[in-house]
């Protein structure tokens, strides 16, 4: 464990909690892409099946259970409890355009053609594009609630911190995982446009609105 991975995990946890609290407190999922949340639930489900097969540490196990629990709770709040506030018209990204290519790539490019490894690879590739429906929805509505921008900031920051974690681990442990690194770079690049808007607008107290 190193400072980049720890702050990365805490940033990820903060994002997940911020979103859950936003929906729960405002009793509304306006502006939130339910499709991205479905993808995140799928990412955690396919990545954390090793909860059933191996124990790494209490931290590892507890964080995985929290991530999975919050992901499904968020999907439940969006599609069941606060379904009336779900903006399905603007959440129109075709998930099959992501899941099918990612599934194919996971079968072609992986470290080992075993069941758990393919699922892990699928979850890594899927996570790198899972935010696209959310970013697409914001581009369609042309704006985002400030609390939603904080959610996106911490979510984007987490994988950026993981990039530093991988540099650290390569230098000090000689460890690296090219699949996770390449997907992590792609994932972080997808946030760059948002990061620019977040820093230049939201941090200056303005609302995040895209030029219509």
């Amino acid at each position: 464990m190193n400072i980049f991975r720890l702050t990365g995990d805490l940033s990820h946890l903060a994002a997940i909690i911020i979103l859950l609290l936003k929906i729960w407190k405002t009793r509304s999922c306006a502006g939130i892409s339910g499709k991205s949340q479905i993808l995140f639930a799928l990412v955690f489900t396919t990545r954390y099946l090793d909860l059933l097969t191996s124990f790494i540490s209490f931290y590892n196990t507890i964080m995985k259970l929290i991530y999975i629990g919050c992901a499904y709770a968020t999907v439940y709040l969006i599609y069941m409890k606060f379904k009336a506030t779900y903006d399905g018209n603007h959440d129109s990204f075709r998930l099959e355009f992501l899941v099918v290519p990612v599934g194919g790539l996971a079968c072609l490019v992986n470290h080992d053609f075993s069941f758990l490894e393919i699922l892990w690879t699928f979850s890594i590739y899927l996570e790198s594009v899972a935010i696209l429906p959310q970013l697409f929805m914001i581009s369609k509505t042309g704006e985002a609630e400030t609390i939603t921008t904080h959610y996106l900031f911490f979510l984007g920051l987490y994988r950026a911190l993981y990039l530093f974690n991988w540099i650290w681990r390569f230098y000090f442990e000689g460890f690296f995982d090219m699949i996770a690194i390449v997907a992590g770079v792609v994932q972080t690049i997808l946030y760059c446009d948002f990061f620019y808007l977040y820093v230049t607008k939201v941090l200056k107290g303005k609302k995040l609105s895209l030029p219509a």
Partner: peptide
């Protein structure tokens, strides 16, 4: 070290 499939990250 260098092994890529030690899955100790979240």
């Amino acid at each position: 070290p260098g092994k890529s499939n030690q899955k100790d990250e979240l």
